[in-house]
């Protein structure tokens, strides 16, 4: 956001609002956190302790983050791609919508915590169950955003295409797909977050690797510092992924 403001020649007040305001909110939250941690230590560890945990064992968190990222990113890629492809089919063949959207809704309503153990029984102790859970989590937001985007076409532009008898393929590739890009990027940001959460939740069972497993094991040992260090790792990683998607959006959606 701040970069956009610099580019568009924003005023000093706007810049201050864009940069200072979120920092101020974070500072207030940090102070609140510290107050709770120092008053009731069993709820939250002091932030300094969590930071120290990172500095002491960076390799530990990087390894487990790598495991989670592997499942989360593959799941995101498969879920996002299949969501866009299915949305394309639904927009191309409108009769598919009533048949497939309820199934997608059902998939979205599936409690992923509950199906993770079932997937481990089916696929064994490997990355596949975690990838499947991340895929399910990423699929729906991408599908819905892609359907909305592909249908949200400027009516006048569509008439211009129709008046020239443009083929359905031309309408799709030259009009619908580019028009939907802002929606696809919005969907991707929600989907990558969902995929990471899905991967972490699926690691609660059947594995000793990944940030989800670290959180569960640390909780069972009442190690609040390690648990929060793992949670912060996942938050930072997800924010970084959203940042990468934002950057790609800025480079591609330049209108």
């Amino acid at each position: 956001m701040a970069a956009g403001l610099f580019r568009s020649g924003a005023t000093g007040r706007q810049l201050a609002y864009a940069i200072v305001a979120p920092l101020l909110v974070l500072a207030i939250l940090g102070l609140l956190w510290q107050w709770v941690a120092l008053t009731i230590g069993s709820i939250l560890p002091p932030l300094g302790k969590v930071g120290g945990e990172f500095i002491e064992r960076p390799g530990f968190y990087v390894f487990h983050l790598g495991v989670t990222l592997y499942a989360g990113l593959i799941g995101f890629a498969i879920g996002a791609l299949s969501g866009v492809l299915l949305a394309g089919c639904i927009v191309w063949f409108p009769f598919l919508g009533p048949a497939l959207v309820p199934v997608a809704l059902m998939l979205n309503a599936t409690p992923i915590v509950a199906i993770a153990p079932a997937l481990i029984v089916a696929f064994g102790f490997n990355a596949i169950p975690h990838i499947i859970v991340a895929t399910i989590a990423a699929f729906f937001p991408m599908l819905i955003n892609a359907i909305t985007g592909l249908r949200s076409v400027d009516r006048g532009a569509l008439e211009v295409f129709d008046a020239m008898s443009a083929s359905r393929g031309e309408v799709f590739l030259r009009l619908r797909l580019p028009s939907s890009l802002p929606y696809l990027f919005s969907g991707a940001k929600v989907a990558v977050t969902a995929a990471m959460i899905g991967a972490i939740v699926s690691e609660f069972t059947g594995t000793t690797e990944g940030l989800g497993a670290v959180i569960v094991i640390a909780t069972s040992f009442l190690n609040l510092t390690q648990m929060w260090a793992a949670i912060f790792t996942s938050i930072l990683a997800t924010l970084l992924l959203i940042g990468v998607i934002n950057l790609a959006e800025r480079l591609i959606v330049r209108w």
Partner: peptide, 10 residues
């Protein structure tokens, strides 16, 4: 050639 109400440029 169809010219719609809004410019409808891409």
């Amino acid at each position: 050639a169809w010219i719609p109400q809004s410019s409808s440029l891409l």
